[in-house]
Design a binder for these strands. Structure first.
Lengths: 193, 193
DNA sequence: AAATACTATTGATCTATGTCACATTATTTT
DNA sequence: AAAATAATGTGACATAGATCAATAGTATTT
C-alpha cells in the first residue's frame, strides 16, 4: 500500500531501503468516506496527508459567504493546510473528500523526526512546495488575464479526467467563475463543434 | 553590507560565525540602476538575488500583450524566477529595478555548495518558499472574491509605504485591475473622507 | 530650455460575467 | 420506490470593471 508514496518520493530524492522502511513507519493509514472532512476550518491542521486513492477538495468560505476551491488533490498528491500546520493557528481551509479516500497521514512530531533522520526530506518538501508555488503563481496570472472560456479550456486540457470526477459547480468555483457562466461557456463550446 | 542578509537568515535558522562567513563568500554584490533588468524573459535565470537596498518588480507579458506584476521585491526579500532557476528553462518573468538597487547574487553552483555545506539552508529556503506560497494562495482567493476597492484597501493597509515608491499604474497591475479603475477607486475613497 | 516620455485623471460607452428565478434531470437517502 | 437533495441548464436583467479617448501635469533626457 505504500507503492505510490515510494514512487513519488523517489522521483525526487534517493532513499535506501532502511530509510524508506523508517519513513513508512511514520505514517498512519486512514480511510475517509466521501463527504467527510479531513480538516474543518478553525481546527488546527495536525497532519499532512498523502493521497493513495480518491480525491479531495480544499476550499475556503470568504467573508461574503461564497466558497472558493483552492485545490483538488488526486492520487499521488499531498494535501494539508500548510499555514495552519506550520504555525499551529486555526486552519483557513476546509478539506473534504469528494470520493472515498485512502490517505497516509503524518503528524507533526513524526514529520520532525523524519526530517531529522533523513535530511533529504527537507529537500523533497522544498521541491513540492516550489512546484505548488509555481502552479499557484500561474493560476494567479491566469485569473487576471484569461476569460472564463480560456480558464475552462486550459483546465480540461491539463486534467481532462477531472470532468468525470468533479461536479461542474465545483470546477466553476476552482476557476473563479459562477456555475451559470461555466454552463454557458460549455454550451457555446459544444455549439462550435 | 551583509547585515540585512544575516538578520533575515538568522530569523529562521541558526548559523555559526564560520558558517555565515562561508555563506557570505558565496554571494556576489551587484548594483542595478533604476530601469535596468536583472532578468529578461527568455533568458535563463542563473541567480537568486537578495535585495539589500532598492525595489524591483517581477512581471509577465501575457499572450494579449498586457503586463501583469507578480511581485514587488523590497529590502530583505529574495527575488528570482524560481521555475527558470530550478529547471534551466527560459524565464517567464521580467525582473526590473524600479529604484537603484544593491543586490547580493548567488549562482546555482554556489547555491548547491551552500546547501551541501550548511544543510540548514535547505530548511531556510523551504520556509521562504512556503511563506511565498501562502501569500500567493491568499492573493488568488482575493482575486476571486474581492472588489477592486477591497484589493486596494488591503494592499495599502499591508504596505502603506509602497504608494510612495511605486507608480499607481503598477499597483493597478499588481492588483489585477486597470489603472483607470484604480484611479476611480482612489477618488471615491477620498470623497468618502 | 525644449522635447520626449511617463504618469494620472475623468468622461462616455461597452461587455463579460454576476445575480436572481425557475425548470429539469440526476443522484442519494430513507 | 418514493421522497429528498444535489446538480445542471437557461432566460432576463444588473453591474463592476474594461476599453477608448482626450487632457494635463511631471519627470527625464538631450
Amino acid at each position: 500500500m505504500f507503492e505510490l508514496l515510494h514512487q513519488k518520493i523517489t522521483e525526487n530524492i534517493a532513499l535506501s531501503e532502511e530509510e524508506f522502511a523508517f519513513c513508512k513507519s511514520q505514517f498512519q493509514p486512514k480511510k475517509l468516506k466521501k463527504k467527510r472532512f479531513l480538516l474543518g476550518e478553525d481546527e488546527v491542521c495536525k497532519h499532512i496527508a498523502f493521497v493513495e486513492k480518491g480525491l479531495l477538495r480544499s476550499y475556503i468560505i470568504d467573508e461574503k459567504g461564497s466558497e472558493h476551491i483552492l485545490q483538488f488533490s488526486l492520487e499521488g498528491w499531498w494535501v494539508s493546510d500548510m499555514a495552519s500546520y506550520l504555525t499551529g493557528e486555526p486552519a483557513q481551509y476546509n478539506i473534504e473528500a469528494l470520493e472515498d479516500c485512502e490517505l497516509l497521514l503524518i503528524s507533526k512530531p513524526s514529520w520532525e523526526l523524519l526530517l531529522e533522520k533523513i535530511p533529504a526530506f527537507e529537500r523533497y518538501f522544498r521541491i513540492l512546495v516550489e512546484n505548488n508555488l509555481i502552479v499557484t503563481q500561474r493560476r494567479l496570472i491566469a485569473s487576471f488575464s484569461d476569460t472564463a472560456e480560456e480558464k475552462y479550456q486550459k483546465l480540461i486540457q491539463k486534467f481532462p479526467l477531472i470532468l468525470q470526477r468533479v461536479p461542474l459547480h465545483m470546477i466553476a468555483s476552482y476557476l473563479g467563475i459562477t456555475r451559470e457562466t461555466l454552463s454557458r461557456v460549455r454550451s457555446q463550446l459544444t455549439d462550435k463543434k
